[in-house]
């Protein structure tokens, strides 16, 4: 530590309490929902071929909450778009429950950062969209949709149009809409990135509650360290240029999670480790701007 600030000594982020270790053991015994093998993606660009992702291998177990984190441009979004089927990988394969998948499908639900609710459909109709695409009709679809809406706490808004909802409410509808298809895995691409801090914290809580009660596996992309540590079982850290897996971290913070845990040594150690990976020390020196001095007053501000 070269810093002159007072520091606390943190434990190794790999140290796990027995209960946590037991949880991870059980988690890894569960069947693999999503298996990624040798996944790569490269684009043709004017400067030649650019490799966005290279040699990605990882498994997501049933009912696991996996966060993907990395600095901007590391290919997080490309990865989730490939997983959802909206883009095709240039190499490797993608197995859902052991079967290769190509192209988008209702077995992989997706929640986007931009609100992608259909503006011409009411909340209920939005949630019914997936089942209707599958050819289902009748009152059962509607009552199911009502239940999903109730689950995200928006029963009073089932006939509202998306424009009548706040950002956080829209994302709750988007989650309900994705879950209504009963997907094997829920892919979430920085879903709370556009929300203010307070709403985001609230949404994280909602999401954990939903995940606890619904049989769903979640792969969640974020660039927010706290969000990742707070939500995830494991955190997949991506390294940029080309996008590769740096490390898959098992979060040693016990569940159920709460905001109070953010001062636990295990929490801080995990956060510090990821922070170091995403912002390596050699890049960390402060860039000095060449600003002419334009003030005489307030010399002592720093």
């Amino acid at each position: 530590m070269t810093s002159s600030h007072p520091t606390v000594s943190l434990p190794d982020y790999r140290e796990q309490e027995p209960a946590v270790a037991e949880r991870f053991r059980k988690l890894k015994e569960r069947p693999v929902v999503l298996r990624v093998r040798g996944l790569g993606k490269s684009f043709a660009s004017p400067e030649g071929r650019v490799t966005a992702l290279e040699g990605l291998n990882f498994d997501v177990h049933r009912r696991e909450f996996l966060c993907v984190i990395g600095q901007s441009g590391c290919g997080k979004s490309t990865l989730i778009r490939i997983l959802s089927g909206l883009e095709q990988p240039t190499s490797g394969e993608l197995l859902l429950d052991g079967k290769a998948v190509h192209g988008p499908g209702p077995d992989r639900g997706m929640v986007f950062q931009s609100y992608t609710l259909f503006p011409w459909l009411s909340v209920k109709e939005n949630v019914m969209f997936g089942p209707k695409m599958a050819g289902r009709t009748g009152p059962s679809v509607e009552s199911e949709a009502r239940q999903w809406i109730e689950m995200v706490g928006l029963s009073d808004f089932e006939n509202a149009y998306p424009f009548q909802l706040s950002g956080g409410m829209k994302q709750r509808v988007a989650i309900a809409r994705a879950l209504a298809n009963q997907p094997r895995i829920l892919l979430m691409d920085e879903p709370f990135g556009a929300l203010d801090a307070q709403t985001r914290a609230q949404m994280q809580d909602y999401l954990l509650q939903i995940w606890k009660n619904i049989d769903v596996t979640i792969l969640f992309i974020t660039h927010d360290l706290d969000e990742a540590v707070y939500l995830a079982d494991r955190i997949l850290v991506l390294k940029a240029k080309p996008g590769r897996i740096d490390e898959i971290i098992e979060v040693p913070v016990p569940r159920p999670r709460s905001l109070d845990q953010s001062i636990l040594p295990a929490y801080l150690a995990t956060k510090k480790r990821i922070s170091e990976m995403i912002h390596p020390r050699e890049q960390h020196h402060k860039e000095m701007l060449h600003i002419p001095r334009l003030t005489v007053a307030g010399d002592e501000i720093e």
Partner: peptide
Amino acid sequence: VSLLEAAQTLGANQRQLVTRVVIPG
């Protein structure tokens, strides 16, 4: 375009993309 992508992840096929998303949208 993101509406079309969302619809695809919800299981809409090519025909449904046109009739259920492009046209009403």
